[in-house]
């Protein structure tokens, strides 16, 4: 009995020893020398692997950062300035300041404004309904409402609002990774510069049709009437293909265009409620 135990112990120990020796030599032979800083940089990245930086994952981005001469064009939208600053410190480089972004939906075609003209009954996928036909309304540019963007969002920052049949972006969860931008077959989501207090002011429309058809399809469509263009003092507004666009980097949130827009297609979010006109005037004169 005792000899059995002894033989077992010896043979197993021998086996372990031989395996250890083999493992040691193999590990030496196949050793890959990797820049230790990659691990360090990866540790400060958010590990969301969202692809918002343009790389496949955080590891690839960390490699790119370590190899890069300068940080120009490299940015982690999720980690933001904080993560980029830490990475720059590790690698002894300077992180350029990149405006934090947030996603906005360039369509406000709720059933109330944009009457339904048919009922989509196929697979619930925007790409399919976009390939199939104009959509449930007469607007061939607007939101199809099947929620591809919501499914694409890995940060739980979007949901479908059943009343408006449009997706809603939750500002404090949105990290501007751009997954929804890629998911939308009609390119209705834009990443815009984040303003303080989550304020947003933009043309919530993507309709490039002429004024008449656009307005027939949707009462809040931008008709490209150029009224806003004329009122803007900062040159932030451009009009192309019958569609106005407000440049977020130039916009000062004066909100003059909002009241000027005949179809209310320019929308403002998170602003304090409008003061009486006299006060606004006084403020703009003083400010």
């Amino acid at each position: 009995m005792s000899s059995t135990i002894l033989i077992t112990i010896i043979s197993l120990s021998l086996l372990a020893l031989i395996s250890a020796v083999i493992l040691y030599f193999v590990a030496q032979k196949f050793k890959i020398s990797e820049d230790a800083r990659i691990d360090e940089v990866q540790a400060i990245l958010p590990a969301a692997n969202c692809g918002g930086c343009g790389f496949a994952g955080c590891r690839n981005f960390a490699e790119a950062l370590v190899q890069a001469e300068t940080f120009d064009g490299l940015n982690c939208p999720v980690g933001g300035a904080e993560a980029m600053g830490l990475a720059a410190k590790i690698l002894g480089k300077v992180a350029p300041f990149v405006d934090p972004l947030t996603a906005v939906l360039l369509c406000n075609g709720t059933p109330e404004f944009r009457p339904r003209t048919s009922i989509y009954n196929g697979a619930s996928d925007c790409r399919i309904s976009h390939n199939l036909y104009i959509g449930e309304t007469d607007c061939s540019y607007g939101c199809l409402g099947n929620g591809d963007c919501v499914r694409a969002c890995t940060f739980d920052a979007m949901y479908m609002n059943n009343a408006t049949e449009l997706p809603v972006i939750t500002d404090d969860k949105c990290v501007a990774c751009g997954a929804c931008v890629k998911a939308c077959p009609r390119n209705l989501i834009e990443l815009r510069k984040k303003a303080k207090k989550e304020r947003k002011l933009y043309v919530a429309c993507s309709n490039c049709d002429k004024g008449g058809p656009a307005k027939r399809a949707c009462s809040v469509a931008c008709t490209g009437c150029t009224k806003c263009l004329k009122v803007c003092e900062f040159g932030a507004i451009t009009i192309e293909n019958n569609l106005a666009y407000i440049d977020a980097t130039k916009c000062t949130f004066c909100r003059k265009c909002v009241s000027e827009c005949a179809t209310s297609s320019i929308i403002e979010i998170n602003f304090p409620s409008k003061k009486p006109k006299a006060e606004v005037l006084a403020e703009s004169v003083n400010g």
Partner: peptide, 13 residues
């Protein structure tokens, strides 16, 4: 299942 819906999408893509 909407098989063809997705196959058509895949084919187009």
């Amino acid at each position: 299942r909407p098989i063809l819906d997705y196959v058509r999408l895949g084919k187009a893509t």
